[in-house]
């Protein structure tokens, strides 16, 4: 039996990753007016066999990170290193071959499945692209994968619209699994589902991780879901990582004011417990024109003058815990 627990070996490393989208204005003649800084200097690593949770509000750039890692979007700056290879330097053809190593599970399971293809064909497609040209062999593997994700072989003959949301997400998982990838980026895979189905799918993902030694980057906006599945958690705010720590450490000992505020918003299923909820003032600033210094200073309860002037470093405070705040 291969050791299934997480190791310290790095599978994927992201270095100072930036993704800017140009913003254009004008009707007839489009003129460049600035950049939308979706991801603005993010570094982290994912270790083989672990689950790294990535949380943040909508629009903070977490999905963009997932897409840039898979090179579905080209980064504006920075590197993505997978098993020692810099992905951004690969040619398109080399990258295409690398794709079997890393897969994605999409948030909207309905939109991410081609409505004109049968489920069996959807799952068989990656196997076909990988080079298994024997139809019987492909069908056998499709049936096996359907079984693994909790569907039946006869489901393969149906179209995506005939399934429930939870079943469709299982199809999405099956497609990602078809290539035996090492890394799966789960882009809010359960956010659109109701709670009981969420639990089923999370358990499925955990079982698959054990069985196939998968590494997950689990993107979500729900801290309680992430807490359950992640070994380590990164909290993002406006294109930057605010805090990164082991799951237990982060939930017990949050340091960044934003993390503290987020954690205080998790509902506790006990009406007798009184909680001090920290309500953040105002809205998330625009990523086109982010605040100077620390990006959180406009809403931070502990704000000082230095926060407006200097961008805090992403510092190690020991115990594998990183925070970007001047006062920690």
């Amino acid at each position: 039996m291969i050791e299934t627990k997480k190791t310290t070996e790095t599978l994927l490393k992201v270095e100072n990753l930036k993704k800017y989208f140009p913003v254009k204005k004008g009707i007839a003649v489009q003129r460049y007016v600035g950049d939308l800084k979706a991801v603005d200097g993010v570094s982290f690593e994912i270790r083989r066999g672990e689950t790294l949770g990535l949380v943040g509000e909508s629009g903070c750039g977490k999905s963009t990170i997932g897409r840039v890692i898979l090179r579905l979007l080209e980064p504006s700056k920075g590197k993505v290193i997978f098993e020692g290879k810099v992905l951004n330097e690969l040619s398109h053809e080399e990258m295409r071959k690398m794709r079997s190593q890393m897969q994605m599970i999409f948030q909207d399971s309905y939109a991410s499945l081609n409505p004109r293809m049968r489920v069996g064909d959807i799952i068989a497609e990656p196997i076909l692209i990988q080079g298994v040209s024997n139809r019987a062999e492909r069908e056998k593997r499709v049936c096996k994968i359907l079984d693994v994700v909790g569907l039946s072989p006869y489901h393969g003959a149906r179209y995506p619209h005939e399934f429930s949301g939870g079943q469709r997400q299982r199809i999405g998982i099956a497609r990602a699994l078809a290539l035996n990838p090492k890394l799966i980026i789960c882009d809010e895979p359960v956010s659109a589902l109701d709670l009981s189905i969420q639990a089923q799918l999370i358990n499925l993902l955990e079982d698959l991780q054990k069985e196939y030694h998968l590494t997950y980057l689990f993107i979500a906006h729900d801290l309680s879901v992430v807490k359950h599945i992640s070994n380590r958690v990164a909290v993002m705010y406006l294109g930057k990582i605010a805090e990164l720590a082991n799951s237990e450490e982060l939930y017990k000992n949050p340091q960044h004011p934003y993390t503290i505020a987020l954690l205080s918003a998790i509902p506790v299923p006990d009406p007798t417990v009184k909680k001090d909820r920290i309500i953040l003032k105002g809205d998330v600033p625009s990523p086109v024109n982010p605040p100077s210094g620390c990006r959180f200073h406009t809403r931070c309860p502990k704000v000082q003058t230095i926060c407006k002037e200097q961008d805090p470093n992403f510092r190690d405070i020991g115990n594998d815990h990183f925070v970007a705040c001047h006062f920690i």
Partner: peptide
């Protein structure tokens, strides 16, 4: 999204357009 998904499994342009 399913075009993005097709790209993520390594489909070539020809396959993405035709299929």
């Amino acid at each position: 999204k399913y075009i993005e998904a097709a790209r993520s499994i390594g489909a070539k342009d020809r396959r993405i357009i035709l299929r």
